[in-house]
């Protein structure tokens, strides 16, 4: 038995698959691919999967991670990779399979690319204004609809903006991990509360996962 980390991308129409549904899909994918995954041995036996970082519905990702255990040591990483690639649905790209180098707990940040339609060119100005003031208020909905207020500006590890042809691209790195996770969707809300129209989003993509030192999570 050994630990295996599966790296994958989730694109296109797969973005409509929520985290819970993704979990069920992955269980079926491992079964269909014939990967000898380890099952828990309790009363309700199930395939043991750990997603490093759940992803909200509507967001695509270039780099996400699932951990599991493999019971048959004769299955190499390469065999598992091939089997998964062959059976994965359109929009799921299995990038690599190898043993985990970092602990899940080391995951600290995630970077995102958000592309807004900015036809009236007002978004960037308002975003810059918000950033300058160092206060971007947002409401985070937790379990049982409990609402916590937070200042997004404080949470931003880094941010770059670029405007071209009526399109505003924001590249932002936010906390993502065991201790704290900030959902990039919250930016939409801030625009609204700052008095802007809700902008049309073209792309919401997670680009990469990082550890504390902004090294790629592997």
């Amino acid at each position: 038995m050994r630990n295996v980390r599966v790296f994958y991308a989730k694109r296109g129409r797969m973005k409509y698959v929520s985290h819970l549904d993704m979990n069920r899909y992955m269980v079926r994918l491992f079964k269909v691919a014939g990967v000898p995954a380890w099952y828990t041995e309790g009363f309700n036996q199930h395939l043991y999967l750990t997603f490093a970082q759940p992803l909200s519905l509507g967001i695509t990702t270039d780099y996400d991670v699932i951990d599991l255990k493999i019971t048959d040591d004769s299955y190499t990483n390469q065999t598992v990779l091939k089997a998964l690639q062959e059976k994965a649905a359109e929009g799921i790209e299995i990038l690599d399979v190898r043993e985990p180098w970092m602990k899940t707990a080391e995951l600290t940040y995630a970077s995102y690319t958000i592309i807004y339609k900015d036809s009236d060119n007002g978004l960037l100005e308002s975003l810059e204004k918000l950033l300058k003031g160092n206060v971007i208020p947002a409401e985070k909905k937790g379990k049982k609809n409990k609402i916590t207020l937070l200042n997004l500006a404080e949470k931003i590890k880094s941010i770059e903006t670029d405007r071209e042809d009526g399109v505003l691209t924001v590249k932002v790195t936010l906390p993502a991990g065991n201790t704290e996770t900030v959902n990039p969707m919250l930016f939409l809300q801030s625009f609204e509360s700052a008095g802007n129209r809700r902008p049309e989003v073209v792309i919401y993509n997670r680009d990469m996962l990082f550890n504390e030192n902004l090294e790629r999570f592997e």
Binding site: G12, R13, M14, Y16, V17, S18, D21, Y25, R28, L29, V32, L57, G58, K87, A89, E90, G91, E200, V201
Partner: peptide, 18 residues
């Protein structure tokens, strides 16, 4: 895609299932 994100369970309309 824009519209799907504004409704409940967009998976009902997205297709692309295995």
């Amino acid at each position: 895609e824009q519209l799907l994100l504004s409704v409940q369970k967009p998976g009902r309309y997205a297709g692309n299932e295995q």
